[in-house]
Amino acid sequence: MSVSNMFSYIQGFLSADQDVREDIRKVVQVLEQTAREILTVLQSVHQPSGFKDIPDKCKKARELFSTVRMHIADLKTKFPVDQYYRFHEHWRFVLQRLTFLAAFVVYLESEALVTREEVAQILDIEVVRDKGFHLDVEDYLAGVLIMASELSRLAVNSVTAGDYNRPLRISNFINELDSGFRLLNLKNDPLRKRYDGLKYDVKKIEEVVYDLSIRGLAKEAKSEQ
């Protein structure tokens, strides 16, 4: 094979690759748009008025997730299924956001940590790689960490809204999450960097709990129950 033939063969391969990336980028853009919409719906829980109708907001968010499922189904058709990691970078960010949003909804509904299986179900994707488009474990963990910082914010705002009970529950939850993450041996990668932020969230929530305790507000909240 002559040199120029070889190069035009490679060039054909490269431009095919670029076309696939272009297609993926388009779908991911739409996904990001939907993710922002869901976030906007959920952000209102931080407002005093939003505390009352949390279930309503969750319902709305869950409805929006059906759009997400549709777009992800579209994304799946854009590339060969066994080349997930080749294009992973394109949707990694948005998948982490979506995991965060799913985790946040599930937390608001049931105050429990969403499992990887549940996220996969909400997004209509797989958990194991062999079965197709899946949720990478690191992306799941990154999403959970985003939720942790959102919860530390929620703890502060729930005090402002007069809900003294919630911070205590959030504190327990985050502590459990923290000890979970401590089990992991993380490499020096983006996930590790994000995990390093978790301690500040833990600290912030502890301060809120502390503020409530010395003022006797925590006890008040308990007796109310």
């Binding site: 499992t115 089990l183 992991l184």
Partner: peptide, 15 residues
């Protein structure tokens, strides 16, 4: 707790 149990699974997977 279930959280710790799941994180143990993640630990193995990541390792």
């Amino acid at each position: 707790s279930p959280v710790i149990a799941t994180f143990k699974v993640f630990q193995m997977e990541l390792d």
